[in-house]
Write a protein that binds this DNA or RNA. Sequence first.
DNA 1: GTTTTGTCTTTTATCTACAATAGACAGATT
DNA 2: AATCTGTCTATTGTAGATAAAAGACAAAAC
Lengths: 292, 292
Amino acid sequence: MAKQNTVFKDAYNRCLKLLADTSSLPSEPELGQVLGVSRTTVRAILGRFEELQLITWDKRKKSVLRQPRPDDYFPTEETDSLAEIIERSFMRRILAGGAEPGMQINELELAREIGTGTTSVREFLIRFSRFGLIEKRPNSHWILKGFTREFALELTEVREMFELRSAARFVALPDDHPAWDELTKIEALHREILADIDKRYREFSELDEQFHLLVHKASSNRFIVDFYDIIAIVFHYHYQWNKTNARQRNARALEEHLAYIEALRSHDPARAEQACRRHLQSARETLLQSIP
Amino acid sequence: MAKQNTVFKDAYNRCLKLLADTSSLPSEPELGQVLGVSRTTVRAILGRFEELQLITWDKRKKSVLRQPRPDDYFPTEETDSLAEIIERSFMRRILAGGAEPGMQINELELAREIGTGTTSVREFLIRFSRFGLIEKRPNSHWILKGFTREFALELTEVREMFELRSAARFVALPDDHPAWDELTKIEALHREILADIDKRYREFSELDEQFHLLVHKASSNRFIVDFYDIIAIVFHYHYQWNKTNARQRNARALEEHLAYIEALRSHDPARAEQACRRHLQSARETLLQSIP
DNA sequence: GTTTTGTCTTTTATCTACAATAGACAGATT
DNA sequence: AATCTGTCTATTGTAGATAAAAGACAAAAC
């Protein structure tokens, strides 16, 4: 295969959901907009719908014939892009598995294990290298620098610089800036989850990312915002991997976030800095605790 | 061609220089060490030397037969790695040429113009994307964000944060840390160049990079040190491109560096911060002046 | 006149292949 | 005993090919 048709399959599945709600579908360009794909892909989806007798399709008329059944959907494993598959595979190996710092990483071997071509693995490693966890020896292998204590300390040092700066910018944002609205939404979600913490504490991870990204964006600095990718990926996999006391940790972090949000709202730089520092301090401790 | 043999050609040229000074060459592993290549490449070089009757080669005996002539060397254009060629080509297009922000970048077209395969161009763009000058639309083209005023401001903002922090670490370095020795060497070079500024002001660019990298390394933080790559590449191409008042600008920067170095030597954090700020301020102004 | 569709071209994502390079191992040499 | 050489294998860097996806343009439909 030259290219996985995951874009098609994923858009197809999402389009099936749309189809469940209406009796006829909109125009091709509009569908493309909604699904975030090109007309070529939209037409491929419509073609398949027609084949499976889900719709009749004659130019502008696209009438729904029947409701989609569960087996009309493509299995979710097939809708992940290759890059996602490689990333997960790789992260599992280096975070969960006993991967020692200094270990060599072999493109060919990785590709064989994941069942993919070397090019994709190679491109992944190049992209991934900016996270500071691996390093290339030209004309030779990659070296795993490892998810070590030093890594975590260096990461949090920069994170703290960036987030303090961003928080300072945030409090100075004009009142009509859309960030305030988003902050309100995020705050509401915090309260919802806290109110039902025993059942919903797992939702924290995603919310955490949303919140901090919003703060970082206030910096209006692409380097600061981009750096948040590193933090996000580290915490993302870290949460998946280290689940001890998750409920309690998340509850605490939610409370800290609420205090932090309130401080941002106060427009008082000193208060914001204090709340930010307090939360970052405990985030750092949590991260460090999980590293042997 | 599957792979350019630039490693061979470059090592071959360097080995020719070694050959000019001795009557016999050391063992294969030792040569490999000196040249930074594997034994396979060393043996290829020795084989070529023998063919060209530069040496006789019988197992451990490698006797020099004649001095190398200028035409024994490979032309320097052939010793640059593909990545270097692509980088130069690309930077020329986006810095010198009238490349508008928002312009689309086409992998295939770039590859054709440079005369290389798409894979290499693609990998270059992925690596280059961390510099924040281009951005990928998945399944579609890259977008040039451009070397704009905002870019320069965002870059210098982070640079200033990082360098101030690094300078603060530098003054606290123990007296026996090797960085002090290197600082002494760099200072001496500054004085040499200043003493003959009219002829040697062009050497500043390289020295500037060396000096600031040394300071950044004091942070012991991979993210801070890695970020310096971005600054280095921007200033590198910027110096090549904007040569107005170069002599005067460089003289001023050299003086500022000397004050900065002295302040670092004083071990006084406040003095170091002041000197650092002063220099960064004028570096920022210089950079901004060159952007329309 | 604007939007949509049908058709066609171009570009990207990915695989495979192969020369250049690195690296491993046993036997030879000091 | 240590190092070096000869030989062999494995991996990387790069090109080229191809299906998937994007996108351009004119004719058709509203």
